[in-house]
Design a protein around this nucleic acid. Structure first.
Lengths: 225, 225
DNA sequence: CGAAGTCTTGAATATTATCAATAGGGGTGG
DNA sequence: CCACCCCTATTGATAATATTCAAGACTTCG
C-alpha cells in the first residue's frame, strides 16, 4: 500500500497556509482562513516509490495534487505492452475526472507527497469561489496541450528524434541543460513507444555524437537538440 | 477565404432557439430568451471545404462550435511534415484557448458551418450561468481523453494496428459498421503518422483478409478489429 | 561474494520509408 | 463523346530503421 497511515500527521492548516504551491494549485483562490477550513477534509499524504494513488478502471472520489516527487500515468494494454501517457510533477493534478473510472493508473516514481481533495468538497467550495473552476479549466487546458505535445513526439518516425525531443523537453522543464532523470529507462521507453534496447542505442548514439553526456540517470545537453 | 460574406444571413435567434446542438454545446444552460440575446454577438457562419477558422500561431478572440461538417486540426512541422492532431465534428469546440495563440490550424474537411462566440462575451455570460464553466470543463476533459486515445493509437508499433484502431474508432462514432470517410487518405496518414503508401498497403491487406470492404471513401467493417 | 535488477551491446529478422511508376476518377474543352 | 489533364490512390522494388532474441556489463542490496 502507498498509504502509510500517517494521514494528517503534520498540522494541516499550518502547512497549507505556508504552502509554496498555493499559486499553481487551487488554494490560491482561498483566504488563509478558508485554507484552514478545507484542511479538515483535505489530506496531505506520503506515497512511497511505486505506490499508487489512482488505479486504472477504478473510480476515485478524490483529486490529487502532487506536492513533492513525481508520478507516471500508466495504461496496461491488452497485448501485454504498457504505455505511459504522461509524467507528472509538483503542482500537477491527478484524478480530474470525477464520476468516471480512471483511464490510467498513477504510480509514484520516487517517494512523493500528494494533497488529496474530495471532489464533492471542491464542488461545494466552487460556489463561493468561482475562480476554482477557472483554475480547473486552465489545468485541463494545460493537460490537453501536454497530451498534444506527446502526440507530436510520437509522430516522429525516427527513434532518435523522439529521444532528442524528450530530453530537450525535460531540459526546458528543469530550466537547465544538466538534470537527473526521475524515471528508469523502461519508463522512458514506454513513454516514447520504443523498445528498451532501441532507447539505449539512441542514447549511445547521442552520446557518441557529443550531443549529450549520459551517465545512468544523469544527463547534460551539450548542444541544442 | 473561408468567410463567404454570408454572415448572419439566416435570422440568428430563430435558428438558435431550435438548434439541435443546444444540449451538447454551451447554449443548453440558457433560456430561450437568453439564447436570442447572445445571438446578437454570436454568428453562425459557413466555411467552405478547405477553409480555415483558426490559424496556427495566431491568436483568436473566438470560440467556435461546429454545427455542420467536419474539421482537421493541423500542425505543420519544421521538417516539412504535417501532423494532424485531431478530427472534429458537430458539437465539438475549436479555439478553447483564449489569450494564447492557437496551437493548430483548423481546416474544414468539407463545406461546414460553425457557431462563433467571442470569449469576452462567454466570460461575462458565465457570471450569471456558472453551468457554462462546467460545460467548458467537461469539454476540456473530453478533449483530453481524445488526445490520450490518440497517444495510445500512435503507441501501436504496427501500422496495420493503427489503421484498424482508427477504423473501429470511427465505426464507434458513427454507431455503424458501414460509413463514409470524411477525409482523404493523406489526412488519415498524417493523423496516424504513417506514409500515404503504408496506409494504402494496410488498407489493401485488410481488404484482402476480408476484415473490411474499402472502396474509395466507403468503408464496411466485416468483423471486429 | 552472490543474486537480482537495470542497462548496454550484438546479430538476425521484420517492418516501414523512400523513390518510382501505374491506375482510377472527375472535370473541362475540343 | 472522347481525349486530355489533374488529383488521388494504389502497387512495386530497394534502402533504412526498429524489433527481436540473446548475451554480457554494471549496480545495488542482502
Amino acid at each position: 500500500m502507498s498509504d502509510t497511515g500517517s494521514l494528517g500527521r503534520q498540522p494541516p492548516s499550518f502547512s497549507c497556509v505556508g504552502c509554496g504551491l498555493r499559486e499553481v494549485g487551487i488554494c490560491g483562490e482561498l483566504t488563509d482562513g478558508e485554507v484552514s477550513v478545507i484542511s479538515r477534509t483535505m489530506a496531505k499524504l506520503p506515497v512511497e516509490a511505486g505506490g499508487t494513488v489512482l488505479r486504472e478502471d477504478e473510480p476515485s472520489p478524490y483529486l490529487f495534487m502532487i506536492s513533492l516527487g513525481g508520478f507516471r500515468l500508466v495504461k496496461n494494454l491488452e497485448d501485454g505492452r504498457r504505455q505511459i501517457v504522461g509524467f507528472l510533477f509538483p503542482g500537477d493534478f491527478m484524478g480530474m475526472s470525477f464520476e468516471t473510472p480512471a483511464e490510467f493508473s498513477a504510480e509514484a516514481l520516487e517517494p512523493s507527497r500528494v494533497c488529496r481533495f474530495s471532489h464533492s468538497m471542491l464542488n461545494e467550495l466552487s460556489f463561493k469561489h468561482p475562480g476554482i473552476k477557472d483554475r480547473l479549466i486552465a489545468k485541463g487546458h494545460h493537460d490537453l496541450q501536454r497530451a498534444q505535445a506527446h502526440v507530436l513526439l510520437l509522430s516522429q518516425p525516427s527513434a532518435e528524434e523522439r529521444v532528442s525531443m524528450f530530453l530537450s523537453t525535460l531540459s526546458d522543464q528543469y530550466k537547465s541543460e544538466a538534470f537527473c532523470l526521475p524515471m528508469p529507462r523502461q519508463d522512458i521507453a514506454d513513454y516514447l513507444a520504443l523498445r528498451l534496447e532501441t532507447l539505449s542505442r539512441c542514447l549511445a548514439k547521442l552520446r557518441k555524437s557529443g550531443a549529450v553526456a549520459v551517465d545512468g540517470r544523469h544527463v547534460v545537453l551539450k548542444q541544442a537538440l
